[in-house]
Design a protein around this nucleic acid. Structure first.
Length: 422
DNA sequence: ACTCCACAGGAAAATTGGGGTA
DNA sequence: TACCCCAATTTTCCTGTGGAGT
């Protein structure tokens, strides 16, 4: 179909990226490499703890702690792969990300469906009573009669949403299926996670814990060198650019994912600029682009009403030029909802959404008492307001606020004139 | 010492939306 | 089709709170 190579941008792009010798997506977060530099010790430790699964024994449950990018998931997945290889797939391994499946119901359903044989139908994502799903799970596990390793990534999300009970049900599996050899690995970046479990769950789950320390700059450099082998032609990555990637990520709590992302984006920028060598300049540009991308992505992925609350925070602070109070945010939120044609949520719910925004880090809050004038949360933007507004305006359902919003600023609730205290 | 404000945030009730069953 | 069950979400109701004002 395309005969004119000279005018084909894909051909052009491919030739420009001639320093690439492999697949750039291999630097992405989901790729699990053959080996994990500086995690050999932890891999060995985890493998030892799980060893008895191969002998149908009852290994300990493990909680893996570590900050973002310390290799918790990669280490665990690596061990999963080793276990599969060593047992020829005899040990059944279920990996569930609790950020996606964060309710008791959805974890159980996912688990049951992972166990479904070809002949069995998947159970629906809602509708069934929990006890029915549980007994379905038990009967499917009984039929399978193979050792089970259950990995719950971001396990703290499940506890935050459904409480300890949801975990207790899963931990109980071992008791309800006679002779089941089952081990659970929980992965979390929340060091206070186990404190929030009730005692019966804590003692069962936290039999063993592993803490993955942050990587230092030199370890990060090793990781980057290892991961770029086979992807970049020799000499296409300057030593100082490599050091810079490692140094930036080391400063960000030793985050290997950050280091890999930086390098990946730096490579991308180099290709786009038709350069042939990745230098400090590209790494610095990559850092800026990543920061923007993360913020934009965060803002755009918020639920609609959380976005409107954030918009209210931005607009209110834009006008008052001081931190705002919950009441102001709530009233302006309702105004904005009205303007956009959405029915507003209750103040109680808005208060929760404000807490959510605080958790995400887009705003910071602290409770302040004004004596006779009551007590309220003082809310301050953590990010540049103009930038937040720009990203919010890119959201389809909010974009109509632009012109109208600015024009209507005068009627927004900005404290004093609408404050019942006055 | 007591009052009162404007909420925070817990608990229970109500609503919503997906699915099953007769 | 009408009704039931269920989990998740949201609303309603409520108690608790810190500190300026009295």
């Amino acid at each position: 179909m395309i005969s004119d190579r000279m005018n084909n941008p894909f051909v052009d792009f491919n030739e420009k990226s001639s320093f690439l010798t492999g697949n750039l997506s291999d630097l992405g977060g989901s790729f699990i490499p053959e080996s994990l530099p500086h995690r050999e010790e932890q891999i060995l430790q985890m493998a030892k703890l799980l060893g008895s699964l191969m002998r149908n024994g009852r290994p300990s449950n493990i909680v893996v702690y570590g900050r973002t990018g310390t290799g918790k998931t990669s280490t665990t997945r690596h061990v999963m792969r080793m276990l599969t290889d060593a047992t020829n797939g005899y040990v059944r391994i279920c990996y569930i990300n609790c950020q996606i499946n964060d309710s008791q119901y959805s974890v159980l359903v996912t688990l049951v469906n992972l166990f479904s044989a070809d002949s069995e139908e998947n159970i629906p994502l809602s509708g069934w009573p929990l006890d029915r799903i549980y007994s379905e799970l038990v009967s499917r596990i009984k039929r399978s009669s193979r050792p089970l390793l259950l990995v719950l990534d971001e396990i703290d999300r499940m506890i935050a949403k459904s409480g300890s009970d949801s975990l207790y049900v899963i931990l109980k599996l071992g008791d309800d299926v006679d002779g089941l050899s089952c081990s659970i690995i929980g992965i979390t970046n929340d060091t206070s996670f186990s404190e929030r479990l009730d005692s019966r769950v804590r003692s069962r789950l936290n039999q063993e814990s592993m803490l993955l320390p942050p990587y230092n700059a030199s370890e990060l450099k090793d990781i980057l060198s290892y991961r770029t082998k086979g992807i970049l032609r020799e000499g296409s990555l300057e030593e100082s650019a490599l050091n810079l990637c490692a140094a930036i990520a080391a400063r960000e709590h030793g985050d290997a994912r950050k280091a890999l992302d930086l390098l990946r984006v730096a490579i991308d920028i180099t290709i786009r600029n038709s350069s042939l060598v990745i230098t400090d300049k590209e790494v610095i540009a990559a850092r800026e682009r990543l920061e923007i991308d993360i913020l934009r992505e965060t803002v755009k992925s918020l639920p609609l009403h959380t976005q409107i609350v954030l918009l209210s925070c931005v607009v209110t602070q834009e006008v008052t030029r001081r931190p705002s109070f919950t009441g102001e945010i709530s009233r302006n939120y309702s105004e904005i909802c009205q303007e956009l044609g959405n029915s507003p949520l209750s103040n109680r719910r808005v208060s929760d959404l404000i807490s959510d925004l605080d958790d995400i880090g887009l705003i910071s809050t602290r409770i302040q008492s004004m004596g006779r004038n009551g007590r309220s949360k003082l809310i301050q933007l953590e990010e540049n307001g103009d930038q937040l507004k720009k990203y919010l305006m890119e959201v389809d359902s909010l974009s109509s606020f632009v012109g109208a919003g600015l024009g209507k600023q005068s009627r927004l609730n900005l404290g004093n004139d609408n404050d019942p205290a006055n």
